[in-house]
């Protein structure tokens, strides 16, 4: 995973090198909490914020990181930002913190954070590290939103239910029921349904991507990471 300084690559996190669709990072929160759009929004924004914070601080310290201390220092920074995010969510969206439960502190274990800190932030200026965090984090957030919306729509027949967890009482009647009557497709709200949906989204992404880019990207044999759906650039 070399750092490419050309302009065009910094936007890769949104599509070509998407943290989830290509690198399969952060699957656990993605599958666990995206049963509703509200949960997905909450965890997605929290992850984005933590990523921005950890990228900035990692980049600031980049000249002082020796090989041996790099991992503990980056982990410490990530853990600090996650704790900060948890404190803020607990103060300003207490019901959401109850709903997300352990998955809020578990953001610290999202490999996407360490990946960006280790493979980008500590090799780039603060500016570029911030931009990269915003882009990769938005890529993650937008996928969370897509998955959350689809699972909520099919699993519970609603959209925007539970938004009061984040926005308080004004959001109590935001809920929409696009289908007539009672509608539930159980598998959509279960983890298995989440897995299937991600699979389909990856397939669709590859279909579109491979149509536009020939020759098709094939993972290099002997590549460092195997759990990928395309070439990690």
């Amino acid at each position: 995973m070399k750092t490419d300084s050309s302009r065009q690559h910094i936007f890769d996190g949104l599509w070509r090198n998407h943290p989830v669709l290509v690198q399969l990072l952060g699957l656990s929160p993605l599958l666990a909490v995206t049963t509703t759009l509200a949960n997905a929004l909450g965890l997605g924004v929290a992850t984005l914020a933590v990523l921005i914070g950890s990228s900035i601080t990692s980049s600031i310290l980049r000249r002082h990181l020796s090989e041996t201390l790099q991992l503990p220092i980056l982990s410490l920074l990530i853990a600090a930002w996650v704790t900060a995010a948890e404190l803020i969510v607990r103060a300003y969206a207490y019901p959401l913190s109850q709903e997300l439960g352990v998955f809020l502190p578990l953001i610290a274990c999202n490999c996407m954070l360490l990946d960006r800190a280790q493979n980008f932030a500590i090799r780039n200026t603060v500016c570029r590290a911030t931009l990269d965090a915003v882009i990769v984090g938005s890529g993650f957030l937008s996928l969370m939103l897509v998955v959350g919306a689809i699972r909520e729509l099919f699993g519970r027949g609603t959209l925007f239910a539970d938004m009061y967890l984040i926005f308080g009482d004004i959001a109590l009647n935001w809920v929409r029921r696009p289908f007539n009557g009672d509608y539930q497709m159980l598998i959509a709200s279960m983890p298995a349904g989440g897995f299937l949906l991600i699979g389909f989204l990856i397939a669709i992404k590859n279909l579109i991507y491979n149509r536009r880019h020939r020759p098709i990207d094939v993972p290099k044999p002997g590549a460092k990471r195997v759990r990928t759906t395309g070439k990690i650039i």
Binding site: T57, H64, S66, L69, L77, A84, L87, I88, Y92
Partner: peptide, 24 residues
């Protein structure tokens, strides 16, 4: 240099969490 970085990171982490805890 890396001892300095670790110290800085630790101080920053403590300050961030302690001040946010107080503010919230």
């Amino acid at each position: 240099s890396s001892a300095l970085a670790l110290t800085l990171a630790a101080v920053f982490a403590s300050l961030l969490i302690a001040s946010l805890e107080m503010l919230t």
